[in-house]
Simulated assay, not measured.
Amino acid sequence: MEPLKLQGLQVGAPLTPAQARKLNGMRGTLRPYEMNDGSFIVLDVKKSLPEPVMQEVVASIGESDSSDLGAFFRKTDEASAKTGKTLIVVRYMSASTKDGEPLTAWMASSAATSFPGFNGGSAEEVAAQARAWADEQRDPAQMEVVIVPS
């Protein structure tokens, strides 16, 4: 039986199930990620999510109804746990201002401690605000801004 090699793994590289089991928690910030089709790829919680993972995260969060904040936050929490990253999600949605006024706009939300929330006229504007906030935090590389298209 050939030994399981974990040296030289690259973010986004495919893993066998045996490699994924061995990698789980054994290589610094590298983690196995199980794709929806049951395959595994390498991710690094200190680097941007590989494109296939980002696509799955966006699709999963996008399945939730933007008016059902409970479902939206559950999907976001599930994706955060699965990726090992704190997600800041930018999405067009409806909510209320601090004064109780209705607001429909591009908004950023996150379970990150003391996340202030942002809103604006475009996804890019709100994502830039969120990334600037993340960059000022103790561990900015662990945070990922995710834009869910409307």
Rank of each mutant, 00 (worst) to 15 (best):
F118E: 00
D68V: 09
T83R: 02
L103C: 09
T104A: 10
A18T: 08
A128W: 03
S122G: 05
A132E: 08
I61W: 00
A141S: 12
V58E: 03
P14G: 04
G117T: 09
R27N: 13
G117P: 00
T76V: 14
A141V: 11
R91Y: 04
G70I: 11
Q129Y: 11
A132T: 09
I61R: 01
S67Y: 08
P52Y: 04
T76K: 05
P102I: 13
F72N: 11
P102N: 10
T29C: 08
A141I: 07
W133I: 04
S80R: 06
V57L: 03
A141F: 08
S114Y: 12
F72W: 09
D44W: 01
K82R: 15
L43A: 06
V148D: 00
E136Q: 15
L30R: 01
D65N: 14
L49D: 01
D37Q: 05
V53I: 12
A123M: 07
G62D: 02
G62I: 01
I61Y: 02
A108D: 06
T113Y: 14
F40T: 01
I61Q: 04
W106H: 05
E34Y: 03
G8L: 02
L4S: 07
F40K: 04
A81E: 15
P14V: 07
L6Q: 02
T16D: 00
Q129F: 12
V42F: 01
L9W: 02
M107L: 14
N119G: 00
A128C: 08
A18W: 03
G62H: 03
T16E: 05
L49R: 03
D68H: 09
W133S: 03
D139K: 08
E144R: 04
Q142H: 11
V148G: 00
R27G: 05
V11T: 05
E78D: 15
Q137K: 05
A123Y: 07
V148P: 00
V145Q: 04
V145Y: 00
L23D: 01
Q7N: 14
G121Y: 05
A95Y: 12
S114A: 10
T97P: 00
G120D: 12
R31H: 05
D139S: 09
G100F: 14
E101C: 09
A81K: 11
S80W: 03
E144N: 06
G12C: 07
R131Q: 15
F73H: 10
W106F: 14
D37L: 03
R21S: 08
A112I: 10
V90K: 03
V89A: 06
S39Q: 12
F118M: 02
A18Q: 11
D135N: 13
V126G: 05
K22C: 06
S150Q: 14
P116T: 08
